[in-house]
């Protein structure tokens, strides 16, 4: 009887674990199912080479490039803010700051990542854009610059926290050896500690990129809804994610080609983040075995 009960419990637990596999299968098949039907109507070559994305207009074009360029533009701006600041914070906290300072500041910075993204969107549109317009009068009301900058602030803690963990895990003995030969803290940080923690730092950067690519609300609110193939940060653009939001807000018939475009866009986004996540998982596994 006891054995039977234990068996039932184990099966129940197993089922829960299998749900996670079902979710992945669900995501892939839902995206693939609708995307395949989309590609029956739209040539995959057009999808990747056409430079216009106008599925909601009468003159329909289905070129993903403008959405991709919008996604990469905002992400690139975000990373170029978050990478130097996040890395500097992590090095400062792990190599220079007193323990008590580190202990208070780290959770406060992590609070930046806990703020709902719709709040960041508000900030980008209502505060940052008007402020930047004071400096660059040509800046449009919707633009990738303020969306990217604010997104950069949001992902600072991803880089600073995970990198700091990796730097902190570098054995104290290596630092002492370097100090003992007359190196400054800065030299020790960049020549010994950062190289030793490089895999953890790379993981943090990849996670941040993946997060930036998938970020939705900031760009949906502040970057505009005009898909265009450009790297000009001052004009309105549209990202993959904000296109999905735009269609979802409108009244699009289930089963129509417009409905399927969001799945075609979704599978493109999923592929990119999947590749990034897999790389970071691989590095993390290798790095764990290196340190243990």
């Amino acid at each position: 009887m006891r054995k039977f009960k234990e068996g039932v419990i184990e099966k129940t637990l197993l089922t829960s674990a299998l749900i996670t596999v079902a979710v992945t299968i669900g995501i892939v098949s839902v995206l693939a199912f609708e995307a395949i039907r989309f590609f029956k109507e739209v040539s995959i070559i057009d999808f990747f080479t056409d430079t216009q994305w106008t599925p909601l207009f009468t003159d329909k074009h289905y070129g993903i490039l403008p959405l991709l360029s919008g996604t990469f533009l905002t992400s690139a701006i975000a990373i170029s803010v978050a990478l130097p600041i996040g890395l500097s914070i992590s090095i400062y906290l792990s190599e220079y700051a007193p323990k008590s300072f580190r202990k208070t500041v780290k959770p406060m910075l992590e609070l930046l990542a806990a703020i709902p993204t719709v709040v960041y969107g508000f900030f980008a549109l209502i505060v940052v854009t008007p402020f930047l317009q004071g400096i660059f009068p040509n800046l449009s009301g919707f633009n990738s610059l303020s969306a990217g900058l604010v997104m950069g602030v949001m992902i600072i803690p991803f880089i600073s926290s995970i990198s700091e963990d990796a730097l902190h895990a570098v054995p104290k003995e290596l630092r002492e050896a370097s100090y003992g030969m007359g190196a400054t803290k800065l030299q020790t940080a960049f020549k010994v500690v950062v190289p030793a923690a490089s895999s953890g730092i790379i993981v943090s950067i990849i996670l941040a990129i993946s997060r930036a690519i998938g970020e939705t609300m900031i760009v949906a609110i502040a970057a505009g809804q005009q898909p265009r193939l450009t790297f000009d940060p001052t004009v309105p653009i549209e990202t993959i994610t904000s296109y999905i939001v735009q269609v979802s807000l409108g009244d699009v018939q289930h089963g129509s080609i417009e409905y399927r475009t969001i799945f075609a866009a979704g599978i493109t986004l999923f592929t990119f983040t999947f590749i990034l996540n897999t790389i970071s998982y691989g590095i993390r596994k290798k790095y764990q075995s290196n340190y243990e």
Binding site: V23, G214, E215, T273, N277
Partner: peptide, 8 residues
């Protein structure tokens, strides 16, 4: 799964 964008 932890890295899949929420919109997906």
């Amino acid at each position: 799964l932890a890295g899949v964008p929420s919109i997906i």
